[in-house]
Amino acid sequence: MAEAAIATAASRPGLLADARRIWNDANGVQRAAICIAVLLLIVAAFAPFIAPHEPTAQSLIARLRPPFGFERYREGYLLGTDELGRDVLSRSLHGLQLTLILAALGATIGLVLGGALGLVSGIAGGLVDDIIMGAVDAQIAIPFTLIALLTLAIFGSSIEVMVLVLGLYGWEQYARIVRGEVRRLMAMPFIEAARAAGASGGRIAFRHVLPNAVSPLVVQFTLSISNIVLLESTLSFLGMGVQPPTATLGSMVGIGRDYLPTAPWIVVAPAVMILFVTFAVQILGDWLRDRADVRLRGR
């Protein structure tokens, strides 16, 4: 298996050629999404170097200053300042970085956890299936915000706990989707063909079932990234999220809400960034799903 992977990797043309091919395949919206995604990633990765100010540096004489081009604009604060005189641009950049890390880690943990449980549930069936699906039903019955608040209240709201909580979010949806797909696929003749050929359970699960169940997983993953960004801002708004003065996009929107009538710019910058993140993720997710499906590729 490993040799085969190396062989295919070596036989591929360079990364640049790959990128060019992908770019040529993409349509207008997809190209826009690619550009936005690349831009967001670069900006997030280099936030500490790009940001003109420290995200937590306060300047009480420059509170609630509007962005460039408005009256009372203060030199050096391009997107204005918030209620404590902190630079909105710098906070947005740092917030973007943290939010992307939280969302990516959270969604991935949910995907792996829920996906694995769904796979086991669908393939094993019987009592195992009943137990896992019972847990899923229980999870659906309890509002997740409640669980998140409880967990954060008990363990404190450190970044690590936050990642775990966000990772738990949505596991039951992955589990249900994967289980449904797996049950459908297990009845397909090609699974029986694999069994007749002598394939082990693991081989059937990872080589035959999982690759065919990827499409709905990708869709769910993209949905869940946007949802996690929203959950994180809900928790921050309730005061149980990432603690101030650390900035996340969600907490900036949450806190800025109070100043919406007088200083809307505090909310606008992080809100637009959330918009861009979800847009790029959704479009790229759709496109990834299509490309992952060999039946749709190269038509």
Binding site: P189, F190, E192, A193, A197, G198, H208, P211, N212, V294
Partner: peptide, 25 residues
Amino acid sequence: FQDPYASLNPRLPVHDLVTEPARIH
């Protein structure tokens, strides 16, 4: 099997498909 459409894993290329039993054994 009867149904040649459903008895081949749609996600695998032919060289993986036809050699699968040989790889397993």
